[in-house]
Design a binder for these strands. Structure first.
Lengths: 236, 236
DNA sequence: AGTGTCGGATTGTCCGACAATCATGCAAGA
DNA sequence: TCTTGCATGATTGTCGGACAATCCGACACT
């Protein structure tokens, strides 16, 4: 019989099929992914109500399933639920943006401070993320991919801590910020000079100057904060 | 007409009724609270399956509602969902405990480093949390209250950062840890010497020696980690 | 030992239903 | 005119039942 926990037979197995895996995808998961995509692509304005029936009919599924998916979105902070009034796309007020940037600053500063103690594999992940991003910038990739790769760099910094849970929270923070960015189109201009900032950061890390790197990431995020707040201000 | 967002009329109102509020409590919320309580009180062993029908019948509610509540618990990390096999109480494996403690160490170290820049109100929250805890220790309060107040101290440290989102993640981390503790009864012995550690921490903070305080909280959490892992080991 | 097969239990998803709540517009009264 | 009260329609929160798909365990077969 299986001893204690998750899967039965992961202890003595170690067979030649360990590389195999099967992704199980429920309908709810697919709905969440689709809604997330729509949000990140800016197809839905902030404050847009997400009516259960409308989504259900549009996707050809039941209201229960939509309801469950909306619950996930709310838990992720991408949408808010007004009791008895339904769910609507989250609106990025200045306070949220400030909070998002500060929280990210805490996590990422801790990440770069953990560079010396980090796994070589995770350090390589940072390097690869930066390479991917600069490649995307050089190739003039789409706004979405640029955004995604840029956030991937920041995520890889948190990954240096080797804590799955902190990475998970960093991911939801990134997702929230991505939603805010999707509602301000004009961030693309900042994309290029940010590339320089990140290579500089990596250079500091490779040199071992951890504190300078932490300061650098702090400045970087402060700049991003004021930029986003400025882009957000006129339409309030 | 109401301009953009959440409530209509919060701009020019500022009336004398701002202190009033009404808590709206859905059935799902109450179910979640009840299940959480049962988990924290150790009424359910790790790995216990949470059957939807059983809970629904037991509480006299519908399966849909239970399902939604279980989704919340899973999102909080207090339970895990095995596809097509249902939800069960999360089992605190050593890797999770390690991750929890390290993640908390990151957040709380950042918190104590933020002591000088913190709001006086939040600093006072730390002092009050410590007073409450020591009072509970002195009064020989119940295991649950001791646990709760102890975790409240750690939460107040994260609160020094002034970031609602980081506090929220610290709360879920605390909840997970609390679940793990609920499944190991014998932590009570450590309660008393921990009181000394915390007063020492606060003394360092009041003196302004932030780095020493950060180191102290790091040691404290490392000790907690090995203690929990040791208590967890024999029954594997 | 390893491999089919069957029955029961449980989940994932759907459908239909209903009261409670909210938004809106309009009528009535100060 | 400003406020209050009421009718109406839309939407949510919750319920109950239903069904196929999946999983577990046992049992038979080789």
């Amino acid at each position: 019989m299986c001893p204690v926990a998750s899967r039965c037979g992961t202890m003595a197995g170690m067979s030649q099929f360990d590389s195999l895996s099967l992704e199980v995808t429920s309908t709810v998961d697919r709905v969440v992914e689709e809604l997330r995509r729509a949000l990140f692509d800016g197809e839905l304005e902030a404050g847009t109500p997400l009516r259960e029936m409308a989504i259900a009919d549009s996707l050809g599924i039941s209201r229960s399933t939509v309801r469950e998916a909306l619950g996930v979105l709310v838990a992720e902070g991408l949408a808010v639920r007004l009791p008895n009034r339904g769910v609507q796309v989250a609106s990025p007020d200045p306070a949220s943006v400030r909070d998002l940037c500060r929280a990210r600053a805490v996590l990422e500063a801790a990440g770069v401070r953990g560079w010396p103690a980090a796994d070589e594999q995770q350090r390589d992940a940072v390097r690869r993320a930066l390479v991917d991003y600069t490649a995307a910038v050089h190739d003039g990739a789409s706004y979405q991919t640029l955004n995604e790769r840029h956030l991937a760099i920041h995520l890889s910094l948190v990954g240096l801590l080797g804590s799955p849970r902190l990475v998970a929270t960093a991911e939801t923070l990134s997702a929230e910020l991505r939603l805010a960015l999707a509602q301000i189109d004009r961030i693309r201009r900042n994309a290029h000079d940010q590339a320089g900032s990140h290579t500089h950061l990596l250079r500091l890390l490779e040199r071992g100057d951890v504190e300078a790197a932490a300061a650098e990431i702090g400045h970087h995020l402060e700049d991003a904060e004021v930029a986003i707040l400025a882009a957000l201000a006129p339409e309030s």
